[in-house]
Amino acid sequence: MIENPIIEAHNLTVLYGRKPALWNVDFSLPRGKVIGIMGPNGSGKSTLLKAIMGVATPTSGYTKVYDRELDEVREKISYVPQRQDIDWDFPASVWDVVSMGRFQKRGLFKKLTSEDKDIIAESLEKVNMLGYSKRQISQLSGGQQQRVFLARALAQQGDLFLMDEPFAGVDISTEEMIISLLKEMKDAGKTLVIVHHDLHTAQSYFDWLVLLNTRLVAAGPVSEVFNDQVLTDTYGGKLTTISKISQELENKEFPIRHK
């Protein structure tokens, strides 16, 4: 067991209809680490983040953050939903979206102060999007959309960041930018929990891994859990296909990225 965990899940089960999305999941996560949540499609990764944030309701079991009920510590948590969750054709500007990160602290009925505006601008600066603040969000590329979502989370100024697939469908420069941002945040003592699907980069990105396949397969430091046995248990037959493809590509000296 981990001393003083930042997130713990106990017998967490979430059902969608009769179909379980998560089944009896138990784990606790350490503070100040970059933690990856991995597993095949439909293995409950997003549902896990949603259950922690109270967006999905557990059928049984519970989660705790900072050893407290969610409502007591919400302000310390920043959540980055999946990019595809929202309608990017919405008539809103980049600034509109990032300013939502301040609604929680300022309340829904007060005007944003100049301090809030500084924080919003600073957050946009950190993801290199300040020059786009007036841009309508439908005109952004996938990578830029992801940066906007990250900026909104930064504007929340949490200590714990839950990110749902921040690397999905982004360009290489955005991916590199996110990686350096994550390092910076980790150095500042933040804890980062990231849903991720690319096995190739898992070892270099994360300190800690949670492997899911509806049930918990393994959770622990990358060095302990990232091995053939655990990965086969997590991905089943699919992994053989993945490793075959990457093997083949490597044989042909195809430029596949290893970081």
């Binding site: 949603k50 109270g54 967006v55 409502d71 919400r74 959540y79 939903p81 969750d85 939502m100 829904l108």
Partner: peptide, 11 residues
């Protein structure tokens, strides 16, 4: 715009 995010902030 983003009901899930709103929910996560306790709205």
């Amino acid at each position: 715009f983003d009901p899930n995010f709103a929910l996560s902030t306790g709205i």
